[in-house]
C-alpha cells in the first residue's frame, strides 16, 4: 500500500477518483452509461469528450515541458487549424463531400507542421527562450486565424467534417477515439524509438547529454512539431464540434489548461521525467472539476478561481522549497520536545 502511494501517479489518480466519487454522491446516476441509437451516453463519456482537445494539447505540451520548454502558441494553432480547414471547406465547390473534408484536415495538419517547425527553429537554432519564442506565434497566430476567416465565424456543413468532433464510431464518440489514437501514437513514438529516453536525458541534464554526444536540437524540433500537430487536431475537433471556425475564441486559454494538466499529472515544469498517462489523468481532473462545479450547483463562474487555487496548491507541493518547509514543520516538534525535556532536567 505504501509503495503504491509512492507511485508518481498515485496522487493524481486519487484526486480524480475522489472527484468522481463526489459527483456520484451528489448525482446518483453520474457513473451510469446508457445506450441510445447505438451510441453510448453518460456523464463519464461527456467528460472524456469535452476533455479531448485539452488532452490532445496536453500530450504535446508534456513532451515540450520534458525538454525544459513550454509552448504558449497552442491556442493560436487551434484557431489557425480550425480557420484554415473551415475556410477551405466553405470556399470549395463541393462543400459537403468527404474528399473536401479530408483535404481540409490535411491542410490544417500541414499548417501545424510548418508552425511547429517555426517554433522549433526559434528555440533550437536561434536560441530564444521557449516562452518568448512561442509568445510570437501566440500573438500573431490569432491574427492569422482571423485573417483566414476574414474576421467572421465561418460555418460549414459537411457531415464527414462534423463527425470528427461530434460523430460516433463503434458506439463511442469519434473525438475520444482520435484522442486515444494520438495517445497511442505518442506512446509508441516515444517508447518504441529512443525518443522518450533522449527527451528525458535532455530535460534532466542538458550538459551531460551534450557530452554524451546527444544532438538536442533535433529532439527539440520534434517536440515542438508534435505539440503543434496535436494542437491542430484539437482545433479540428473544436471547430468540427460546432461546425464553425471562431478565430477569436477557439482555443482561448487552452494553453493554460494544458500546462495545468501536465503539472497536475506529475510532470515537473523543470523538465526531465514525464508521464503521458499522468497528463491524461491531469486533463481528466480539470474536466471533471468543471463538471463537479455544475453537479454541486456551484455557479460555473467560480471554476476559474477553483483552477487558480488548484494550480497554486500543486505548484507549491512541487516546489522543493515548500517541500523542505513542510518536512521541517513535521520535524520541528522534535527539537522543541528536546528543549522542553532539557528544561525539565534543569528544574
Amino acid at each position: 500500500m505504501k509503495s503504491l502511494l509512492k507511485h508518481r501517479l498515485a496522487w493524481p489518480v486519487i484526486a480524480l477518483a475522489a472527484l468522481l466519487l463526489l459527483n456520484q454522491v451528489f448525482k446518483p446516476d453520474f457513473m451510469s452509461l446508457r445506450m441510445q441509437d447505438g451510441h453510448l451516453y453518460g456523464s463519464l463519456i461527456d467528460i472524456m469528450r469535452n476533455g479531448a482537445p485539452t488532452i490532445l494539447i496536453a500530450l504535446g505540451m508534456t513532451l515540450v515541458i520534458a525538454t525544459r520548454g513550454i509552448d504558449l502558441s497552442v491556442g493560436a494553432v487551434v484557431a489557425i487549424a480550425g480557420a484554415a480547414s473551415c475556410a477551405y471547406i466553405a470556399a470549395s465547390p463541393e462543400p459537403g463531400s468527404p474528399v473536401t473534408a479530408a483535404t481540409a484536415v490535411l491542410i490544417a495538419v500541414v499548417a501545424a507542421l510548418a508552425l511547429g517547425v517555426w517554433n522549433g527553429f526559434l528555440v533550437s537554432t536561434i536560441g530564444v527562450q521557449p516562452i518568448i519564442a512561442t509568445l510570437v506565434l501566440m500573438t500573431a497566430g490569432r491574427g492569422v486565424a482571423q485573417l483566414i476567416t476574414g474576421g467572421q465565424i465561418v460555418s460549414v456543413s459537411n457531415d464527414s467534417y462534423k463527425s470528427i468532433g461530434a460523430g460516433y464510431l463503434f458506439t463511442l464518440p469519434v473525438s475520444i477515439l482520435i484522442t486515444a489514437a494520438v495517445f497511442a501514437l505518442a506512446a509508441v513514438l516515444t517508447r518504441r524509438t529512443a525518443l522518450g529516453t533522449l527527451i528525458e536525458a535532455v530535460g534532466i541534464n542538458p550538459v551531460a547529454s551534450r557530452l554524451a554526444g546527444l544532438r538536442a536540437r533535433n529532439i527539440i524540433w520534434i517536440v515542438y512539431v508534435f505539440s503543434a500537430v496535436c494542437a491542430a487536431i484539437a482545433g479540428l475537433m473544436i471547430s468540427s464540434n460546432v461546425t464553425a471556425a471562431d478565430a477569436n475564441n477557439a482555443g482561448l486559454y487552452i494553453e493554460m489548461d494544458a500546462i495545468l494538466a501536465v503539472v497536475i499529472g506529475g510532470t515537473s515544469l523543470a523538465g526531465g521525467r514525464y508521464t503521458l498517462v499522468g497528463t491524461v489523468v491531469g486533463a481528466f481532473i480539470i474536466q471533471t472539476l468543471t463538471t463537479t462545479v455544475y453537479t454541486l450547483g456551484i455557479p460555473p463562474e467560480v471554476t476559474l478561481v477553483f483552477k487558480a487555487l488548484v494550480v497554486i496548491t500543486v505548484c507549491l507541493l512541487q516546489a522543493p522549497k515548500a517541500r523542505n518547509l513542510l518536512s521541517r514543520l513535521k520535524a520541528a516538534p522534535k527539537p522543541a520536545a528536546q528543549e522542553a525535556a532539557k528544561e525539565k532536567v534543569a528544574i
Binding site: 500546462i259 463562474e301 467560480v302 476559474l304 478561481v305 487558480a308 507549491l316 516546489a319
Partner: peptide, 21 residues
C-alpha cells in the same frame, strides 16, 4: 517558494479573471 514567475503570475491571472466572473 522559488517558483517560476511565469507559473505564479499565470495562477494570478486565473485567480483575477475568476474573481471577475
Amino acid at each position: 517558494f522559488d517558483i517560476q514567475p511565469f507559473i505564479v503570475t499565470l495562477a494570478g491571472m486565473f485567480l483575477a479573471r475568476g474573481l471577475c466572473y
